[in-house]
Design a protein around this nucleic acid. Structure first.
Length: 765
RNA sequence: GGGCGGUUAGCUCAGUUGGUUAGAGCGACUGCUUUACACGCAGUAGGUCGGGGGUCCGAAUCCCUCACCGCCCACCA
């Protein structure tokens, strides 16, 4: 037998081992069946890899993702499940386009408008291909075993077809609709964004208390005086004694050169304690006011455009930026003695997550998904929702989790999930960016049906004249379909879909839906998904929605949430901080196994974790310890014949029973998704029981010719079982050692070897 | 404003359904060139489990309350 080197050097083995795994084809579950390693009727075990954004490289958060999922997948594979781990990438619409635009601007000084839609998309395509290759390479370095042959991309043709198909179905069901509504507009990114893409930034703001004019009886307070030229009402609380006399009255005032028609309305949404207890209602530029305007049938007057500039017909305001207009108005108030009070308050300013731009509420013609509208669900396996019954998307999302069809780990996130659903409003799904799934919607107006239409013929898309809103009538035909319509004059909507629309289909679009494929039948619902806590709403909830709607199923049984990986000081990893976090670099330093064991052992579901290199070093030592345990046992194997039966002593039986117990414990802990406890149990057993106690005790026996064969049999049995148990945690080093094990003659690859059964030891007697 | 999580050894963190002297890694200290491993071995020190109150035969664990830290949601205009 060849003797192992004194120390384990990961870099020497990892590449070759990975190549051997991949070349075997056994990441693919059907290949496992063909080779007789998995039974054809085995229960499936499926994990869809949360597709990393196609915007570049993986970070330590992805390393955590790979560590946990590959661990679960390798365990399932060894335990005989028909195991599929399906990889892919997400086109991450806004993030990717913003990134490429930035790069291009930096390098060439060109904007997307200089390049045009086609050229920009071509550039993004190239960029995304590069990123995907980088991501694949990084996953390989970490030892991931996904079925690369099934790799998917949220923007490839099969996934796009799924998107168009669902869009059409939802449109036909009346769930997707087009409407003029106040949406969150990002002036910097020049697109709408969803409620979930807003981050509130605390800032200091000036709160101005003033009267519109000398004649107007009620003073109001605001932090945004520039929007007040768009006011159409003043709202007070219905029970507010101070203002009872004015409710229902209408006033005409000249405010900073603009004539306003203000009605005094009573609405429960007004807090009588705040400011003057009266609120200037600006339906066009505030979500709350828009809703209030709906309740009171108020006119909507737009005064700000997509570039956050004033559109109001007034010489001293028109064309000015909102910040400039604010100064003009405050100045005007002061001059006319209308400003009553000015105080500094702290305020949360809504900003766009991706661009940092201050969100400007604007009325826009957009596409929405109605989460409250009833529709008939033809088929449902979801607890509490019968096939053919009436339901809503919100209800689907709630019941899929409430009924226990989906388990969330850790379970305290259930509350957060339900709270989010309860507050959910219709989802704005259209985006004014170019990279993404173009809406499968075509328009035909009398005008463009004659000549070959151009995109600019579209209604109101960029027109700043909101005076017509909200009663804009579309004098055009609309066609929604999976493929473009026949006939002349149809122009496709310029907009693309929110990136989470396609991500929501991930568990089944990856399996070939809308075709009724074998994959879909076999692998769906999937077993488990492992997202970060920050995308519980963005992604997990949307998957439940989309899957419930489309298949009447849950997308997965288990949601295993992970927190964020931070640096040793608790900071996020970022390029600007230069605080490291490159998985490849870490792998070179400590080996992939140490990284993986680190994440298995020290990271708890749902909680953020700080990366400590001293611990990483500790787990590198652990791989080396395992190496040397193996080295010792293997170098004492001469003369050993596995075929010769041995008689265990009582002490041996105790040892084997303890091993047995470890197998049962580790298996159970992994089943319960308590990966960190499983890792800890194995670490303790291998180092402090097997190495420190058992091996030390067997050394004397090995010197005794009579006892030697029993000691050999015992040690090889212990090592073999531990290698099997450890393989999902540290696949490389265990696979290398396995090649020296007698068992490799019958099971040549540890990756596809069988998981030890708790009873195996007792059977060995 | 509402909700969730955290506070355990010098540091970073575990602690599964409340059960005998509260654990790990790293660090510290003492001793080991023991031929598997110094990426090692044997051992030692170190904690009133954030404060207060309660339930219980028994609480790090359950209940109440307070403090501080972090996150999520809402958005007072």
């Amino acid at each position: 037998m060849k003797e192992l080197p004194k120390a384990y050097n990961p870099a020497e083995y990892e590449d070759a081992i990975y190549q051997r795994w991949e070349a075997s084809g056994f990441f693919n579950p059907e290949k496992m069946i063909d080779a007789g390693l998995t039974k054809p009727d085995a229960e499936p075990y499926t994990i869809m890899l949360p597709p990393p954004n196609a915007t570049g490289v993986l970070h330590m958060g992805h390393a955590l993702m790979v560590s946990w999922q590959d661990l679960l997948v390798r365990t399932a594979r060894m335990r005989g499940y028909r195991t599929l781990w399906l990889p892919g990438t997400d086109h991450a619409a806004i993030a990717t386009q913003a990134r490429v635009e930035k790069d291009i601007y930096k390098a060439e000084g060109k904007s997307r408008h200089d390049l045009g839609r086609e050229e920009l998309l071509r550039r993004i395509g190239t960029y995304v291909d590069d990123s995907r290759q980088t991501i694949q390479k990084q996953m390989r370095v970490l030892g991931a075993s996904p079925d690369w042959s099934r790799e998917a991309f949220t923007l490839d043709e099969p996934r796009s077809r799924a998107v168009r198909t669902i869009f059409k179905q939802m449109y036909d069901d009346g769930l997707i609709y087009r409407a003029n509504r106040v949406v969150n507009w990002d002036p910097k990114g020049q697109t709408t964004i969803s409620d979930d893409e807003i981050v509130y930034e605390p800032r200091q703001a000036q709160l101005y208390t003033f009267r519109y004019s000398k004649d107007f009886p009620i003073p109001i307070s605001t932090t945004q005086p520039e929007t007040k030229v768009g006011d159409t009402a003043v709202a007070v609380h219905p029970d507010d004694a101070r203002y009872q006399a004015y409710i229902g009255q209408t006033y005409e005032v000249l405010f900073c050169g603009v004539t306003l028609h203000l009605r005094v309305i009573a609405d429960h949404g007004v807090d009588p304690e705040f400011g003057t207890g009266a609120l200037g209602v600006t339906p066009a530029h505030s979500m709350i006011d828009w809703e209030m305007a709906g309740r009171h049938d108020l006119p909507v007057v737009g005064v700000i455009n997509e570039y956050a500039r004033m559109t109001v017909e007034s010489d001293n305001l028109k064309g000015k930026k909102v910040t400039e207009a604010r100064e003009v108005i405050v100045e005007w108030l002061k001059e006319h003695g209308l400003l009553l009070k000015e105080e500094t308050i702290s305020q949360n300013v809504p900003t766009a997550e991706r661009t940092g731009g201050v969100v400007q509420p604007l009325p826009k013609l957009q596409w929405f998904l109605n989460v409250n509208k009833e529709f008939t669900i033809p088929y449902s396996e979801i607890d509490g929702i019968a096939s053919g019954s009436q339901t809503t998307l919100k209800d689907l999302m709630r019941r899929a989790v409430a009924g226990g069809d989906i388990r969330i780990t850790p379970d305290h996130f259930l509350k957060t999930y339900f709270h989010w659903i309860d507050n959910l409003r219709d989802w704005c799904i259209s985006r004014q960016i170019w990279y993404g799934h173009r809406l499968p919607v075509w328009y035909r107006t009398p005008e463009n049906s004659k000549s070959q239409a151009s995109a600019s013929a579209q209604p109101q898309r960029d027109g700043p004249n909101y005076k017509q809103i909200p009663n804009l009538k579309n004098e055009e035909d609309i066609y929604v379909g999976v493929e473009a319509p026949e006939g002349e004059g149809w122009v496709q909507d310029e907009d693309t879909l929110d990136t989470w629309f396609s991500s929501g289909l991930w568990t089944f679009s990856t399996l070939g839906w809308p075709d009724q494929t074998m994959d879909l039948k076999t692998y769906h619902p999937t077993t488990l998904i492992q997202p970060g806590t920050e995308i519980l709403f963005f992604w997990v909830a949307r998957m439940i929605l989309m899957t419930g709607y489309t298949l009447g199923q849950v997308p997965f049984r288990d949601v295993l949430l992970n927190g964020m990986v931070r640096d040793g000081q608790g900071r996020k990893f970022s390029k600007s901080l230069r605080n490291g976090g490159d998985p490849i670099e870490m792998t070179q330093l400590y080996g992939a196994d140490a990284i993986r064991f680190y994440f298995a052992a020290t990271t708890v579901p749902g909680s953020d974790t700080r990366l400590h290199e001293d611990k990483l070093k500790g787990y590198k030592h652990f791989t080396n310890k395992l190496w040397n345990i193996s080295r010792f046992i293997l170098m004492n194997l001469d003369g050993f014949d596995p075929a010769v039966p041995v008689v265990w002593s009582e002490a041996d039986k105790t040892i084997l029973a303890e091993l047995d117990q470890t197998v049962a414990e580790v298996t159970e802990l992994i089943d319960g998704l308590k990966i960190h406890l499983a890792a800890e149990a194995l670490y303790q057993y291998v180092w402090h029981t097997l190495a420190d106690k058992i091996i030390e005790a067997q050394k004397m026996r090995l010197d005794n010719p009579k006892e030697r064969p029993v000691a050999q049999a015992l040690l090889i049995q212990l090592l073999e079982t531990n290698l099997r148990l450890l393989h999902p945690f540290m696949p490389f080093v265990t696979e290398v050692i396995w090649q020296y094990m007698p068992a490799s003659e019958t099971e040549p690859m540890l990756m596809t070897a069988r998981w030890p059964l708790p009873t195996e030891m007792t059977k060995a007697e």
